[in-house]
Write a protein that binds this DNA or RNA. Structure first.
Lengths: 136, 136
DNA sequence: AAATAAATGTTTGCATACTAATGATATAGC
DNA sequence: GCTATATCATTAGTATGCAAACATTTATTT
């Protein structure tokens, strides 16, 4: 009989709770884009124009997922897409001017988001948490 | 210029990666239900019949989200619902026989899932990680 | 005690993200 | 040059999450 199993003590469960909390904080500070969309924007800001697939890889997203996220960013006119003349399969993605300025602004807000998310932890704790998540 | 912002070092980003990894492991071991569905089942196993809303609260889910998860479990005949005669708003949820035996089985698999998820961490690390996630 | 107000439980509709399967173009090996 | 394989992107289907709406119960007021 599995009466010694504690759902509340499982990594997966706690991960969900932590993520939930983070999402809530995120949307409070930054309601224009989701965390997923933000990571695409931030990476794009970092690396400049890239193909859709490549971009997805740079933020650890499935090609299909990336497609959807990009589609939403296109609709908001934050990024633009053009066919790569050298490789007709590729779709080159880049920030629009609006996208760039929103991203710069969002990055500042993102600092605050991270800060709030780990508000209950000491600096040492945060470092450890990041290490452990990494190691995992 | 925000060129000192490192997406890869943000808690939110790392949380997403960790969750991703966990989901992958979960579905490999347990393809019948999702982690969300499992947590409902596990909790239901623990507490017996409860109202839909209450159940959601017990696993930290929105009422609307809970409704959706329960709907899928109903379709799979893992849980059953009946109206509470004392309070017509309430929907009492309980495990079916099939649900109960699947849950017992799933809990055993869940142990393995947790084990695999934290395979790269020492026992001490795991304890610390759980504490940090909690504290957060 | 009836009427109104507030709280609680559930449902609906919509947005986001993820997966598996498919189609299109490019590259490598023969 | 031709076939096989790999890469890039898309489509269709499912799951989760939130905001708003609706129904029933409980509390408050008259």
């Amino acid at each position: 009989m599995p009466n010694d199993y504690r759902l509340d003590d499982q990594v997966g469960y706690k991960l969900r709770l932590a993520t939930q909390r983070h999402l809530e904080i995120f949307s409070r500070h930054l309601s224009d884009v989701t965390p997923t969309q933000f990571s695409i924007l931030a990476r794009l800001y970092e690396v400049g124009e890239t193909s859709q697939n490549q971009l997805g890889r740079l933020v650890a997203m499935d090609a299909a997922t990336t497609k959807g996220v990009i589609a939403r960013l296109l609709e908001k006119d934050l990024v633009e897409a053009r066919a790569d003349p050298n490789d007709l399969r590729r779709l080159q993605i880049s920030l629009t001017d609006a996208g760039r300025s929103l991203t710069i602004d969002a990055i500042e807000k993102a600092r605050k988001i991270t800060e709030d998310t780990v508000a209950n932890l000491t600096g040492r704790d945060v470092k450890r948490l990041l290490e452990l998540l990494d190691k995992m």
